[in-house]
């Protein structure tokens, strides 16, 4: 697999490893409203391909849920 030798990333991984999981989760999960995606309380899709197509057709491209911008 490709390896990015970025020292900055390694330092981030090492710093995270020094913190307990409870603390890491406190800062890892954020809450902002995602347009379209969060507009309905429940959605289900028969296939992942159907879900991907729905995202590409409906979710704003800048959210990155599509395969192209």
């Amino acid at each position: 697999m490709d390896t990015d030798p970025s020292r900055e990333w390694i330092e981030e991984f090492e710093a995270a490893a020094r913190r307990p999981l409870r603390e890491r989760l406190k800062y890892a999960f954020i809450r902002t409203r995602k347009p379209v995606i969060d507009d309905e309380p429940f959605r289900s899709f028969d296939t992942m391909e159907e879900y991907r197509r729905w995202c590409e057709a409906n979710v704003p491209s800048w959210l990155g849920y599509g395969r192209t911008l």
């Binding site: 390896t3 990015d4 030798p5 970025s6 990333w9 991907r52 491209s61 849920y65 395969r67």
Partner: peptide, 20 residues
């Protein structure tokens, strides 16, 4: 999945994998 947001996150995630 190959979404834009996945492609953006993969280099750092691969680096984490190798580190882990």
């Amino acid at each position: 999945a190959n979404r834009v947001k996945d492609r953006e996150s993969l280099p750092r995630l691969r680096s984490f994998r190798d580190w882990l």
